[in-house]
Design a protein around this nucleic acid. Structure first.
Length: 477
RNA sequence: GGCCCCAUCGUCUAUCGGCUUAGGACACUAGGUUUUCAUCCUAGAAAGCGGAGUUCGACUCUCCGUGGGGUCACCA
């Protein structure tokens, strides 16, 4: 049986887009499922748009999600080079072959003329397309021009033909060839355009399943034409829907959440991001909401992939992330947590606090705000303290002083002994639980929302609690 | 504008012609648990874009509208 080979073919033009990883996920999963190979090919045929270190970021992003390729510029493989700028001779060779077979032609039109043609067409409300001007050049004319002029090679699109793009999840998509442009295949600088390069490389690299975004559907007929011209068997086409902004436009940087680094910085777990991306276009057969990549590998089939463009709903991601924070073993979470840990927070302290805060955490980036009052004396809001205590300044101060005395007498510093002692005081003082304990919470932690008070006290330690009570009293006088 | 893709609660979806008073999840609202917040539990509100057709029967099939999206480069 033929080996399944999938590929991701990003351009090194900036921070990796989450949509790229979205594609990679299905490449990776399907390859793993079928015991195939997942290939990463760098499509660096546009020198102008290339960004330094972009290639590195792609590897980093893939590695973060655990979607490492089997073959790439870094991992090697039998079908290299895996960088298109290293394959220029191949594209040139195949472009010539197309000319010889009559499926492509030289074009010498200047950018100026092309611009004029385009503008005229737009004026007449016609779709802008190359007017095949150079197609009518005689062999002689071509030969003489080749000697002194720069040229491009264009695809010769046949007239009045129906081109069928067979998409694995969308079925047959029909195009009238008259609506397909005579696309440039080889640029005047000798570099191929995407259209030539992608077909040549996917064929040479023996790609069996080509996953890419829906935005490519409209150029797919050109690729079909090329496969026919070369007489090559095309791979299976899978055009995934596009991730959307809340306004339904294509997910973009303008709206935030587009770059992979954003997700990492926010403190989303790789497991959660994968879970999230997968569920945008696919449902677990047992209707599970939370599942890992192995489940995906086990159950995923392209035929079950949706075609509707989903909004990348951050609320849902947050929920999925919070589920994974609770689900993953502590060891693994702590490993991820390193990135977000403030210096002052020791490993030991974190270990103690974790059971108290992990039910309250949605994103790992919240670690600092959830733990800061365990580390240092928080700012106090006297107004809020007095409001909650329902007593005046002196009474509140006196209460805190009594708490201090009670606490000083506790010998066995544990949740239940603290609990007993402070409840006894609360009853003796004839205070209602809420003012009694809320006042304490505010005086000691500086905030109204914390884990259970006595647990917090236990972790803080007797001495710190006493210090904070004294600090609060000082503030109240 | 041409071409193409898509169309069930606010969002993601189940339903693959009858099993459905259209089910679930997130978000939202209310209540319970909790000294607070969160968790957890319970309940609630919330949807088949419109019109023709096919059929005994349509959310599900076909067509036409409508709406949203993508694409029209010597960029990918």
């Amino acid at each position: 049986m033929k080996q399944i080979r999938t590929r991701l073919a990003p351009s090194p033009t900036g921070n990796p887009h989450i949509g790229t990883l979205f594609q990679a996920l299905f490449d990776y999963v399907y390859a793993k499922k079928k015991n195939g190979r997942f290939i990463l090919r760098i499509e660096d045929t546009d020198k102008k748009r290339e960004v330094k270190n972009a290639e590195k970021s792609i590897f980093k992003a893939l590695n973060w999600l655990g979607l490492n390729p089997d073959e790439s510029t870094k991992h090697g493989g039998d079908f290299g080079p895996y960088r298109q700028s290293k394959r220029l001779n191949l594209y040139q060779k195949y472009a010539k072959e197309l000319i010889d077979k009559g499926h492509a032609y030289y074009c010498f039109c200047s950018p100026k003329r092309l611009d004029k043609v385009r503008k005229d067409q737009q004026k007449k409300d016609l779709p802008p397309m190359y007017d095949k001007h150079c197609l009518s050049l005689s062999k002689k004319e071509v030969e003489s021009k080749l000697k002194k002029q720069s040229y491009v090679i264009r695809l010769k699109v046949p007239q009045n033909k129906t081109i069928i793009v067979n998409d694995l999840i969308r079925g047959k998509i029909k195009f009238n060839s008259n609506t397909v442009n005579d696309q440039v295949l080889l640029k005047s600088d000798g570099f191929p355009t995407y259209h030539l390069a992608v077909v040549v490389d996917d064929h040479l690299m023996k790609i069996t399943h080509m996953v890419r975004g829906e935005e490519w559907i409209s150029s797919a007929p050109k690729h079909v034409l090329l496969y026919q011209a070369f007489n090559w068997q095309p791979p299976k086409f899978i055009h995934t829907p596009l991730l959307r902004n809340p306004d339904r436009s294509k997910l973009s940087k303008r709206h935030g959440h587009a770059s992979v680094s954003w997700y990492r910085n926010q403190g989303y777990l790789p497991e959660a991001v994968i879970n999230f991306l997968a569920t945008r276009v696919w449902n677990h057969p047992k209707a599970k909401e939370i599942f890992d990549i192995n489940q995906l590998i086990k159950y995923f089939e392209f035929k079950d992939m949706h075609t509707q463009g989903p909004i990348a709903d951050i609320d849902k991601l947050n929920w999925i992330n919070s589920q994974w924070i609770r689900k993953l073993p502590q060891k693994q979470i702590f490993n991820y947590l390193k990135l977000y840990k403030p210096q002052a927070l020791s490993d030991d302290l974190l270990k103690k606090i974790w059971p108290l805060i992990n039910q309250r955490m949605e994103k790992l980036s919240e670690l600092e705000s959830l733990t800061e009052y365990f580390i240092s004396q928080p700012k106090l809001n006297l107004k809020t303290i007095l409001k909650e205590s329902k007593m005046d300044k002196t009474q509140t101060k006196e209460y805190l002083n009594q708490v201090e005395e009670v606490i000083k007498k506790i010998t066995n510093w544990q949740v239940n002994t603290i609990n007993k002692a402070l409840h006894a005081l609360q009853q003796k003082q004839k205070l209602k639980p809420r003012p009694a304990f809320m006042t304490l919470r505010l005086a000691i932690t500086g905030r109204a929302f914390t884990p259970p008070l006595f647990d917090v006290l236990e972790v803080l330690g007797k001495q710190t609690v006493i210090k904070r009570l004294q600090y609060a009293q000082k503030n109240l006088s």
